[in-house]
Design a protein around this nucleic acid. Sequence first.
DNA 1: AAAATGATGCAAGTGAGTTGCAAAGTTTAT
DNA 2: ATAAACTTTGCAACTCACTTGCATCATTTT
Lengths: 136, 136
Amino acid sequence: MNKKLEHKLKDNSIKPTAMRLLVLKFLTEQNKAVSLQDIELAFERADKSTLFRTLKTFENSKIIHSIEDGTGHLKYALCLEGCSCSPIDLHYHFHCNMCKETFCLTELNVPTIELPKNFEMQQANMVIKGICGTCK
Amino acid sequence: MNKKLEHKLKDNSIKPTAMRLLVLKFLTEQNKAVSLQDIELAFERADKSTLFRTLKTFENSKIIHSIEDGTGHLKYALCLEGCSCSPIDLHYHFHCNMCKETFCLTELNVPTIELPKNFEMQQANMVIKGICGTCK
DNA sequence: AAAATGATGCAAGTGAGTTGCAAAGTTTAT
DNA sequence: ATAAACTTTGCAACTCACTTGCATCATTTT
């Protein structure tokens, strides 16, 4: 397990420090997108700025992607195998207004969107808000 | 013109004060979504918190809708006639990475999204990022 | 005309995100 | 193996958008 995570980092030229492995492991275990603060709470010993920089590092290497779900807390979630966070394999996110959790709806691909002439899509942030299955 | 704006407010049980009419007029004249600061700059005499509350009032009455475009500045744009900001007439937004402007792509409706079982959609925040036609 | 209600402006607070810098830990070259 | 170079980490402090409390002013109701 840890070997796998370690490789994931090495493959992206990220030094697999203890901290980074812990954060990556934590992210792997979630079935929802988490905020910097969620991670802070999970690792009370760790410093906010270290975690912040760790997340930015992961994000730059496309190991995770971030979602602005409207809560004011940027959320992070693991990219799936092959997810290059490019328009092609973009997915929707769902934010539950009740439990306040944000999930990746990875099974639903965003359809190709017919943009106006000359517009070029580079990234997207798609958040659907409502009530999730558990809270319903 | 002003009469029309005044009616728009009255129809939504909002007192048409001078300030509110000015802000509504300003919003009507834009072809892009604007931030609180954009409005602050347009009306140097007005106070930030007044403008803030004005926007919240408009938003609550569904006269305008807000978009988180990832810039860290919440943007506001007029709802179109009949736009109730409900899932049905939801549209995409486009944020240009070059000129940093955010537009409503009102001509493109968001398709019905097949959510997981028991999930209920209430609102959405759809932002496509890239290069707009003018900057291309 | 007085009381109640609502809008506005100022100042100050909140809080997520971010940065500078020094200390600790790693790697590389000698 | 050791010193020099580089990277990561932790602390503190800062930024900046947004938000709130409260007193004042305006408007509406009684």
